[in-house]
């Protein structure tokens, strides 16, 4: 019963949402879909509380046991609860100047910093991958060199316009056809997975057998 009830609820609501996407003006399907979407948002909002409890439990345990780097956990809890109190009792709206300062001067630059660090990881991953140890990796290496040379002015300057044409051919013909093949397969797989979950064949998330 513990497994069947969530599956029945999932099936009914899943079908309503799918039909609501295709036939929003048929009867009250559109209204139903909108209502279910709103309920989903509410459920997500409640789940934030669960996440906060999880974070608090894990980091409080680290602080209690004084495990290595526990001061990071203290700082995390101060920031999390401090910002919550500031947002709820003082800022109140996202347009508040203090809240805007936190977002624009702290969160956005920190996210940009982490994002920028990807460039170094691209370098190290490329260094490991671009080794001509087999036919496949040699093709990858040659294709990558052509595409990279075409992307910088120096490539055209040194090798002429053909490098751009070769790069465009690799990207538009070879790459696109391969990617579309993957995309068609992935879309069909996604529909089959969704259907397996809707009809209750795939039920590991509600405690069903995973093997």
């Amino acid at each position: 019963m513990k497994q069947e009830v969530p599956i029945i609820i999932g099936l009914v609501f899943g079908l309503l949402v799918i039909l609501g996407v295709f036939f929003p003006t048929l009867g009250s399907l559109g209204v139903w879909k909108k209502t279910i979407d709103d309920w989903f948002l509410l459920a997500t909002a409640w789940a934030v509380g669960v996440g906060v409890i999880n974070l608090t439990q894990i980091h409080a345990k680290r602080i209690r046991s004084k495990s290595k780097g526990y001061f990071h956990s203290i700082w995390l809890l101060i920031c999390m609860y401090g910002l919550t109190v500031f947002g709820v009792f003082f800022a109140k709206t996202p347009s508040n100047s203090g809240w805007q300062f936190v977002y624009n001067q702290l969160l956005a630059p920190m996210s940009a910093t982490v994002y920028s660090s990807i460039v170094f990881y691209i370098g190290s991953a490329a260094y490991r991958s671009f080794i001509a140890k087999s036919l496949d990796s040699t093709i990858l290496l040659v294709s990558a060199v052509v595409v990279m040379l075409a992307a910088v002015p120096l490539g055209r300057f040194l090798l002429g316009a053909w490098i751009n044409q070769a790069s465009a051919w690799i990207m538009n013909v070879l790459n696109s056809s391969g990617m579309r093949g993957i995309q068609i397969g992935a879309t069909l797989g996604a529909i089959a997975t969704a259907l397996r979950i809707l009809v209750g064949i795939e039920r590991s998330h509600v405690g069903g057998a995973a093997e």
């Binding site: 397969g185 397996r196 064949i201």
Partner: peptide, 25 residues
């Protein structure tokens, strides 16, 4: 790659019902 992540459940469990969905794919 792509669809292989959706086939994983059937591949790992070899359950006939999930395998049937792979044939449909």
């Amino acid at each position: 790659i792509g669809e292989e992540i959706y086939a994983a459940s059937a591949y790992l469990t070899r359950e006939p019902t999930t395998m049937g969905t792979l044939v449909a794919e």
